[in-house]
């Protein structure tokens, strides 16, 4: 039942987008997100959309798969559109009882929904083309100058790695425990909110007990392999910024800023 999650899954590849330094990719994603909040014209959105589409093509990602990532958020997107459609004043488009849809609302709703879609697409390109390792390494590297102000960059990155490593394992385990309790007549689906919350106890207690046991064993295994924090640690994969990485970063940022200023 949890096997269908595709949102944000990494799709290995050798494209230019895959090879771009993860730090640049993270920063550029932030730039695109910021620009999306500054732009409010159709042309602006259009250009950002073309840019994202271009990246998807260059990265040779299957378009259907990328769009699949929007599915879990479809409800929120439709809701956003609906709210704007009916909540704005202006020329009447049509009406259902007391609810009046306006042209202005449709326009506003459409741009807001489009903005959300672009946000999801933009960030999922990052996770689709960057392995979890590169992501965490990139974050660690970007955060490390802030160690001085007390941000534990290595520890955060290690925690993220372990979390990413164990998500599939724990999902599998959740499914197994759920089934085992269902085999004993447990019911996770019916009843009111309180009953349903209560019915989760037989699921959550073993899940946590097992997670603690795993954490204990993992800690011991890490210690046995000489883990002692970030101090003196080397990495197999060194991140090296190439001129190409920097250039890509500059060009894309400049393009985005131009869109924000002129449109």
């Amino acid at each position: 039942m949890f096997r269908n999650i595709t949102l944000g899954q990494y799709m290995p590849g050798t494209s230019l987008v895959h090879k771009l330094d993860p730090r640049i990719k993270i920063l550029l994603t932030l730039v695109v997100i910021t620009i999306l909040f500054m732009v409010d014209t159709f042309t602006g959105y259009g250009l950002v959309f073309l840019f994202i589409l271009g990246v998807i093509l260059v990265a040779r990602l299957p378009v259907r798969f990328v769009l699949y990532g929007i599915k879990p958020l479809l409800f929120i997107i439709v809701l956003t559109f609906g709210l704007h459609l009916f909540m704005n004043e202006g020329r009447t488009l049509f009406s259902i009882g007391p609810l009046v849809a306006t042209y202005e609302g449709a326009f506003k709703g459409f741009t807001m929904a489009f903005r959300l879609v672009l946000l999801v697409l933009g960030t999922s390109i990052l996770t689709l083309t960057t392995s979890p390792i590169e992501l965490t390494d990139g974050l660690e590297s970007l955060l490390s100058p802030m160690r001085g102000v007390g941000i534990p960059a290595h520890e955060l990155a290690m925690m993220m790695t372990i979390a990413l490593r164990f998500i599939p394992t724990l999902l599998e385990e959740t499914e197994k425990i759920m089934k085992a309790q269902m085999a004993r007549g447990a019911d996770f689906e019916t009843g009111n909110a309180l009953q349903r919350a209560k019915s989760l106890i037989p699921l959550l207690v073993p899940l946590f007990v097992n997670a603690f046991r795993r954490a204990d064993e993992l800690a011991m295994a890490m210690e046995a392999r000489c883990y002692r924090g970030g101090e003196g640690r080397t990495r197999m994969k060194q991140m090296k910024l190439t001129a190409g990485d920097v250039l890509t970063g500059m060009v894309v940022t400049a393009g985005m800023v131009a869109i924000a200023i002129y449109l």
Binding site: E173, K176, I177, K179, A180, Q181, I201, P206, V209, N210
Partner: peptide, 13 residues
């Protein structure tokens, strides 16, 4: 039909 999973002790709560 009772089903006892592998490592059933992991489901005690």
């Amino acid at each position: 039909v009772g089903l006892v999973f592998q490592y059933p002790e992991h489901q005690l709560f």
